[in-house]
């Protein structure tokens, strides 16, 4: 646990995120926003303290998050294993202060809280090690 990849591995992580980004774009073109979100959340948060990697990953997750139109429909195909990590990114989204991002994050936050309970929020807020 807490195996943080050294700085020279940051490049490898960035490459992986770029690959993920291309896959997401193609999924979005096929009108598969939930698949895109799942892809974005996979391997998140990057196991590093490198802020560059975290930001790059957030950009990818943000892209997929904003493409979600029907939140209820999203939850019919999003497995519970993604709930905790999604909640962390919602809080990152809310911290940006960007109006459309916050609107979207709040919409999903309400539904996610309903689904995953307050425990999910607690886990997002209390984890100071695996930050997104």
């Amino acid at each position: 646990m807490g195996e943080h990849v050294e700085a020279d591995n940051a490049e490898a992580i960035i490459t992986r995120i770029e690959h993920k980004s291309r896959k997401i774009e193609s999924l979005l073109k096929q009108y598969k926003p939930v698949e895109a979100l799942k892809t974005a959340l996979e391997g998140s948060p990057p196991k590093t303290r490198d802020e560059r990697c975290k930001s790059a990953n957030w950009i990818v997750v943000h892209r997929a998050l904003m493409a979600i139109k029907d939140v209820d429909l999203m939850f019919t195909s999003l497995d519970p294993e993604y709930y905790d990590i999604l909640m962390k990114y919602l809080y990152r989204g809310l911290s940006t202060g960007d109006r459309p991002t916050c609107d979207q994050c709040l919409r999903i936050h309400e539904k996610l809280t309903h689904k995953a309970g307050l425990g999910c929020i607690l886990r997002a807020l209390s984890d100071t090690v695996n930050t997104v």
Binding site: D84, A116, G117, L118, G119, C120, L122, R123, S126, D127
Partner: peptide, 25 residues
């Protein structure tokens, strides 16, 4: 304090642990 409960068996050199995620506080 992150809404988890942990159960640990075989305390010793190689313990086996289970984490149960809580829905609530």
């Amino acid at each position: 304090h992150n809404s988890m409960i942990y159960f640990v068996d075989h305390i010793g050199p190689s313990p086996s642990a289970q984490s149960v995620v809580l829905r609530d506080l």
